[in-house]
Design a protein around this nucleic acid. Structure first.
Lengths: 209, 209
DNA sequence: CAATATTATGAGCAATAGCTCAGCTCTTCG
DNA sequence: CGAAGAGCTGAGCTATTGCTCATAATATTG
């Protein structure tokens, strides 16, 4: 009843089932369109067309184009399920297995729609807020891995902070490229070697220090 | 004298010094603008403005916006100077030093303008031709590294193809992220650990195989 | 079955971008 | 000097895109 000039968030909440469905349709369509055309060429009209709704309806659910991609990103982050440290075997002699589990996690979390993911983080003009969200999750993940390294008896690297950062980055990013590119190398082989590399790094050895 | 309707390449060749200078000015301006605004928001008008020439002149040197970025990319690739295998010490016990040289190479080649480089390969709509050029250089680099691994007596990994691919990707991409991000970790530490990781991987060890 | 709230529609506005072209200025050279 | 061609100019055309709004359709409620 008061202030008659809001309209910051188009549509407060969907009240009917129909609305929920439409919202989902938009997101699904957007995922397809962005994935196929990229962010810039993935126009809102194209998204509406694919969702089989009018462009006007689309803008009742999202205040602008960026918000659509933001919703997709948040959804992806929320879905991302990494195995927790307490589900892992930390007894001596199990480092190789532990690392392999981490690598597999990364691959699983990127297998859904690698192309879309790439576009979300590489092409999209992420708002500061979104960037912060992504960053927060990244830092959390690094801290988690750092903690794991600290607990595992087989780990012999000294600079745990750098190691954790390096590992997360390496695993994440190699997975990215692996999924996005037309595989130049079989996934299993790549997975095995990537795990090997990380494992050997963590074991430390006499040649480097 | 014949066919009066070409005009595929605006401006065949600069005949006067002035023209060369203008061309350079455009490229320099474009590098700045793309680097600051990104590809989409780096408009041709902005580039012309920064180069202090008219928009019309710009289009006498480049047929379209993409061509400008293509020129920048080609230039970067051409400039990229990787140390050759025959400049490296391949005697036993030198693997750590060799790897460190490779890592340093990567960092050097990205230190000029990391932001621009990121935009060139991540945001730009590269033509198939350009993609091929990039790809060709990538493959060449991988082959080079594979060869190096095969020659070096300290290398104990068996799957050289996968190893080469993995190393190039890892080093390249870690460097990327390192330069682009507001450093969360000092460069030297990261460089050292990255080199350590690769070195230990190549040495192989008893824990993995 | 009204009356009201919610959801859907799509023509079209405003902004912006890539790019053209008719004509100008400057350089070159006999 | 002066003519011819190389190089430069920038208003503005064309196309596209994100997004609005007046209106209609559908759902809900009393």
């Amino acid at each position: 009843m008061p202030s008659a000039d809001r309209r910051l968030q188009p549509r407060r909440e969907p009240r009917q089932v129909r609305a929920e469905l439409t919202r989902e349709r938009i997101l699904a369509a957007a995922a397809h369109i962005f994935s196929e055309y990229g962010y810039a060429a993935g126009t809102t009209n194209r998204i509406a067309e694919r969702a089989r709704i009018s462009i006007g309806s689309l803008y009742q659910y999202f205040p602008n184009k960026d918000a659509i991609l933001a919703a997709l990103l948040v959804r992806h982050i929320d879905r991302g399920t990494w195995t927790q440290a307490d589900e892992l075997d930390l007894s001596p002699g199990t480092l190789a297995a532990t690392v392999r589990a981490l690598v597999r996690d990364a691959i699983d979390n990127h297998s859904e729609d690698p192309q879309l993911l790439r576009i979300m983080i590489e092409e999209a003009p992420l708002s500061q807020e979104l960037l912060d969200t992504v960053d927060r999750h990244g830092k959390q993940r690094v801290a988690q891995i750092r903690d794991l390294l600290a607990r595992h008896p087989d780990v012999r690297v000294t600079d745990l902070d750098t190691a954790a950062e390096l590992i997360v980055l390496t695993v994440e990013i190699n997975t990215h490229k692996l999924m996005a590119d037309p595989r130049p190398i079989p996934v299993e082989r790549f997975e095995r070697e990537l795990a090997n590399m990380v494992t050997r790094y963590l074991h430390g050895d006499r040649h480097t220090e």
